[in-house]
Amino acid sequence: MGTATGIIKALNSGVKHLAVKRFTLRYPEQKLKFVGDGYQFDPTTGVGIAGYKGRHMLFHDKCTGCQLCAIACEGVAEAIGMVKVQEEWKHNKKAIMPQIDYGKCVFCGLCVDACPFYALYMTNDYELSSFTKEALIYTPAQLQVKPYVQQDAEIIFDARGATHG
């Protein structure tokens, strides 16, 4: 192939893309769709359930304060600390529950794997930025709230290429 034809072919390949749809996700307006409600773990079978590893969700009616999540996190990020809670539960005599520092968390999900009581799951919430370090520390009361996550865009394929809808 000659130099001139090669350059014309390269230019032509670029020009063809004027007709191809734009692939970019327009982020704050559009947000990606996820599968499921987030990463979960089934301790009876020892296998997880596929989902996004975002902010945690703590079920106060199941947490026994056994600290297994904090022990699992010890060698990874040391993001989980056990704190006193005001609630009184029969299954949680010590009244301690995990508090998670998202300034340290690496979102590996090993704490979810460690929980034998189905008390700790992960959700699709990924917008956790804040102006202060203190606001990144989520107390058990904050972890109890189920987040609302906007999910509207998905990659679609058609004759003119892939787009985010």
């Binding site: 192939m1 130099t3 090669g6 350059i7 072919k9 390269a10 032509n12 390949s13 670029g14």
Partner: peptide, 9 residues
């Protein structure tokens, strides 16, 4: 291929 690997430049 056309824009990169076969590009004479």
């Amino acid at each position: 291929a056309a824009i990169f690997y076969d590009n004479p430049i």
